[in-house]
Amino acid sequence: MPGSGRDERAWVRGAQAGSASDLEALFRAHWPRAFRAAYLVVHDSAAAEDIAQESFLAAVRALDGFDRRRPFGAWLHRIVVNRAIDWARARALRAEVELQDGFVAGAERAAAPGDDVLRALAALPPDHRAVIVLRHLLEYTPGEIAELLELPRGTVNSRLRRALDQLKERV
């Protein structure tokens, strides 16, 4: 679970000063949710790993200029969810060929949904999945989601409503 706001500011300050243990504290606090959020949008664990990892790398690169008064989690989640939406949209357009012989990694397909929620989520468009994840996993308010995704609040509300209606039908 993420630490308190004070903990988080101290970790960011420490990481800015070069402390690897403070960076690790930030990573431990935020990785599980960042990874899970990405997975619930893209439904592919390798892609979710890449997206969450890339988002942390972006955080490391931008660390020196990061404003400690801002919540680190919201900043990270904005990157994660936007990248996950982009990945899910682009997936159909990007042809990937994985060889199947013994020397190369072949088994990197999307995990088969073993859970009814996951299956129901998979039926939604990526941007609808994203608002569900932001609202119900990461617990942002619709106003905050609108800010994170740079959308009008009405759009967020309507996506949430439609997505929940579809989920209710399927779960």
Binding site: P32, F35, L40, D115
Partner: peptide, 16 residues
């Protein structure tokens, strides 16, 4: 949503 099982979750964290 919190209980959805994600393959390879622990190793993923270590690698990342």
């Amino acid at each position: 949503l919190e209980r959805v099982e994600i393959p390879d979750e622990h190793d993923t964290r270590v690698r990342a």
